[in-house]
Design a binder for these strands. Structure first.
Length: 296
DNA sequence: AATGGTCAAGTCAGC
DNA sequence: GCTGACTTGACCATT
């Protein structure tokens, strides 16, 4: 079991998700930004390993506009050495990596232009992970997409598009239950037809379910991850006390997390904490998980 | 330095 | 019909 947080570290004073407006795009701005993002990513990973945080989600903004037509610069070549260095560090430290493309990335849209833009963005994500030299346990997590007034047809469209993807993309793709459209059972049905692993979002499941027991769910979920997919990944968050249902908490609810660790026995998993205060909650979660036999 | 409008991209709930 | 939420406020022109 690893525990991690997404994209941003609030304590070390650099950001690996710096971006800028499309209207201010210049090659110089692009190169400066990417160089800064990569160097910060390296600092974050170094800091993380020092704190035994071995799971990290790399921001989609690490290479801004990578899949946009405006970007013709070969960042792959320019930053090849730096990418290798980071990738080697990830491998030797046994860090788990995930990515989570933006909400605009939708494979089941009825609009072909949206689908092809989405595939281009996924290709960028896969290429980045390839350039880091990571194996297929480095995952790109995606929601199934929109309902468009016909869930069944929308699921079929996802399956059709998924099965035609370049294996460079599909071998890294996993689907995550969301809190209002496609729940974990929907995702499992899609797995049955495609073999795609299902990333279980504990919080989304709490928001949208049909009364399934979480532990029983995890048996089904974890079977969707093959050996080459690595340890199953799980997203965990707590409800923000004031915000609407589904709003992510500022800090981890540690007694709720303790409960999750208990009821999820004996399933091994890498847990991504989608909580606003990032590494602070990760540290709290890790100190709790030290008593858990699954936490190495 | 502070402010406020705006940001590549989509969907949908809630008002 | 518009706004906010999503994983996340930050960029940037203007004062």
């Amino acid at each position: 079991m690893r525990i991690g947080y997404p994209c941003i570290n609030r304590s070390i004073g650099c950001r690996s998700d710096q971006k800028f407006r499309l209207s201010s795009y210049t090659e110089e701005r692009f190169v400066t930004t990417v160089a800064g993002n990569l160097s910060c990513l390296r600092r974050i990973l170094l800091w993380n390993t020092g704190e035994h945080i071995l799971f990290f989600r790399i921001s989609s903004d690490i290479i801004p506009f990578a899949s946009h037509p405006v970007c013709s610069f070969s960042w792959q070549e320019q930053f090849s050495d730096e990418l290798h260095l980071i990738g080697d560090y990830i491998a030797e430290s046994d860090i788990r990596i995930s990515m989570h493309p933006d909400q605009f990335i939708i494979l089941n849209s009825p609009d072909d232009r949206i689908v092809s833009r989405s595939i281009a963005e996924l290709a960028y994500h896969a290429e980045l992970l390839d350039l880091l030299g990571l194996d297929s346990s480095a995952k790109i997590q995606l929601h199934v997409g929109g309902l468009y007034g016909n869930p069944t047809e929308s699921i079929s469209r996802f399956i059709r598009v998924y099965t035609r993807l370049d294996p460079a993309i599909s071998r890294r793709l996993v689907i995550e239950n969301d809190e209002q459209r496609f729940n974990a059972v929907d995702c499992l049905k899609i797995h049955d037809e495609t073999g795609i692993p299902v990333l279980f979002d504990v919080f989304h499941h709490a928001c949208k379910n049909n009364g399934e027991d979480i532990n029983a769910m995890l048996y089904g979920i974890n079977k969707t991850w093959r050996r080459c997919d690595g340890t199953p990944m799980v997203d965990y968050s707590s409800q923000h006390p004031a915000k609407r249902r589904g709003g992510h908490a500022e800090h981890i609810d540690i007694s709720d997390f303790r409960k999750f660790l208990e009821i999820s026995q004996p399933h091994d998993m890498d847990i991504m904490l989608e909580i606003k205060d990032k590494e602070t909650s990760a540290l709290a979660a890790i100190s709790l998980a030290r008593g858990d036999s699954r936490f190495g």
